Amino acid sequence: MSSCGTSSRFGKTDDAPKPQKTGEKIEDGKASWYGPNFDGKLTANGEIYDMYDLTAAHRTLPFNSVVKVKNLDNGKSVTVRINDRGPYAKNRIIDLSKKAADEIDMLGSGTAPVELILMEGDLKNSRVTDLKVPTYTVQLASYNHEHQARSHAQKIRGARVEKINMGDKIVYRVYHGIYTDKNNARKKQRQLKRQGFGGYVKQIEN
């Protein structure tokens, strides 16, 4: 059984094609599940993890994507919503909640070969280019007004400003770089800090 909860659980992975629409198989591999040790703790998207909800952790799928998980050993399926990041263990593609794992009879074995089918979510317009490889950036600042973000970005060579829709408001964030190796992102963050620019490394979500 593997565990999850943050976005720092990634190793080397293989390339995967980017799906274009719902109803298509997007990935296959090994599923695992996580439960009591994480029940009641925060998930990567800020929710409280409930092991009796039908949720799951995935490396890169945008939060709130809905996928059908089919157990290839017995043909049973369960539909889950992505609200966390994981799995930690390499060669595993999804971490299911305890209830979701029970629905497809994999609690006892701990893992099972599965295929994932996208039921709800927009990957065509997502910045996710490889389901198995998370991408990172250095976030340097966030502003309510674009001119403030532009002014900040002009001080940092290579910085960019992105408009982020938060649902009820728009914010303008200053980012630097795009990395598939989190260590390289951290190295750049430390370099920028020495130059007087605070920031932190984050996974690009969508």
Rank of each mutant, 00 (worst) to 15 (best):
M119H: 00
K41P: 01
A149H: 05
G177N: 05
V161M: 03
R150C: 01
K187E: 14
D53C: 09
D15I: 10
L107F: 02
Y34F: 14
R186P: 00
D168Q: 12
Y143M: 10
Q195E: 15
D39R: 01
K30C: 04
T6R: 11
K21L: 01
V80Y: 02
P19A: 09
F10L: 09
Y49G: 06
K182R: 15
L131M: 05
F38Q: 14
R81C: 00
T22V: 12
P36Y: 02
N125C: 04
L42Q: 14
A153N: 03
L42F: 06
D122T: 05
K30S: 08
G11S: 15
A56W: 06
L61W: 03
Q148G: 07
G167N: 04
Q195S: 13
G121E: 01
G35S: 10
F197M: 02
A31D: 01
P19R: 08
G23S: 12
S151D: 13
K76P: 00
G110P: 01
I178L: 12
L192A: 02
G110S: 10
D102Y: 14
K90M: 12
I26V: 14
N74K: 05
V201H: 04
K30W: 11
E205P: 00
N206S: 08
K188F: 04
T55V: 03
E115V: 12
T55W: 01
T137I: 07
K187D: 10
G86P: 09
E205Q: 14
I117S: 08
P17H: 10
S7T: 12
A56N: 06
S126C: 11
I117A: 06
L131P: 01
I164G: 02
